[in-house]
């Protein structure tokens, strides 16, 4: 799977790049030289779109988000947001950059010592000098957007997993970010919460005019809501395309992923000696 990624959509990537808000160009990253987590990733997210990055567990999806936040820097290549390289930013610029980002963590990462209201108010209080009444109204609006206005005075521990995820979503959009990043937003949710969160991500993207990147392995839910999908395996983009073309694809990896087969290009067995040798 080291060949050039299969571009399955009719529109070539270059055309979409014209209005690209987020761009990864030949990005490689590894904590040590010999073990690369990402190698030569090219990824483009046009303004206003909802793009999914998919792949099995541990394929480096989350690393892409951390690169975008400026928490880590690529070993090779460039991460550009609005044409500016994230790696070249100073500490202040990175903080300014992060203020325009909203990120939803895998399990919500709500602050356990604060109420729901204070959680959503947290980024507003930290970055603005708004009076308390205004903050209260803003928080209730955000909570209303995710349907949880009534939970304002509860502690995160009193919420179900699905509700906690929605509160985290409200916190993510508290400062009306330009770019929203979602790290496994569907992990550990029941089917109803899952589709609620999915619909909400799409709605918020369109209503607030955000650009969103969704890192997930939930192909079924993603296909319902996203505009464009990248498949990543072993640190490389191995397939990309819009939803209809993914559905129609004959690429063996995409097929295995979409149909959920246990064995295929991604092997069921961890590399090992031949069976006969181990049981000799």
């Amino acid at each position: 799977m080291t060949a050039a990624p299969a571009n399955l959509s009719a529109v070539p990537a270059a055309a979409a790049a014209a209005d690209a808000l987020v761009e990864l160009r030949d990005v490689s990253f590894g904590y040590s030289k010999d073990r690369l987590i990402l190698s030569g990733i090219n990824l483009t997210v046009p303004r206003g779109k909802l793009v999914a990055v998919m792949g099995g567990s541990g394929c480096g999806k989350t690393t892409i988000l951390r690169l975008l936040c400026g928490q880590i820097r690529p070993s090779v290549g460039e991460v550009r947001v609005e044409g500016r390289s994230v790696a070249a930013m100073s500490r202040e610029e990175i903080y300014a950059h992060r203020r325009r980002l909203g990120m939803l963590f895998q399990f919500g990462a709500l602050f356990t010592d604060m109420t729901v209201h204070d959680n959503v108010a947290f980024p507003i209080r930290e970055h603005t000098d708004l009076p308390e009444e205004v903050i209260r109204d803003l928080v209730l609006m955000k909570l209303n957007a995710v349907g949880l206005r009534g939970t304002a005075n509860l502690k995160p521990s009193e919420l179900s997993g699905g509700m906690a995820r929605r509160v985290a979503l409200a916190r993510t959009i508290a400062l009306d970010p330009q770019i929203a990043l979602y790290d496994e937003p569907f992990a550990g949710l029941d089917p109803i919460s899952l589709s609620v969160v999915g619909q909400m991500i799409r709605r918020l993207n369109d209503a607030l005019g955000m650009t969103s990147i969704l890192v997930t392995h939930d192909i079924m839910q993603s296909m319902k809501i996203v505009d464009y999908i990248y498949f990543i395996s072993e640190g490389r983009v191995i397939a990309e395309g819009d939803v209809p073309s993914i559905r129609a694809s004959h690429d063996p990896f995409v097929r295995q992923f979409v149909d959920g087969e246990p064995d295929g290009p991604v092997h069921f067995h961890y590399p090992a000696k031949p069976l006969a040798e181990d049981f000799a």
């Binding site: 300014a96 992060r98 203020r99 963590f105 399990f107 602050f111 010592d113 970055h127």
Partner: peptide, 19 residues
Amino acid sequence: EIGLMKTTEQLAAMEVMAV
């Protein structure tokens, strides 16, 4: 408390919120 905040990514979340 701090260890748990790290484990549940609360510290990372803060960092991404530019705090």
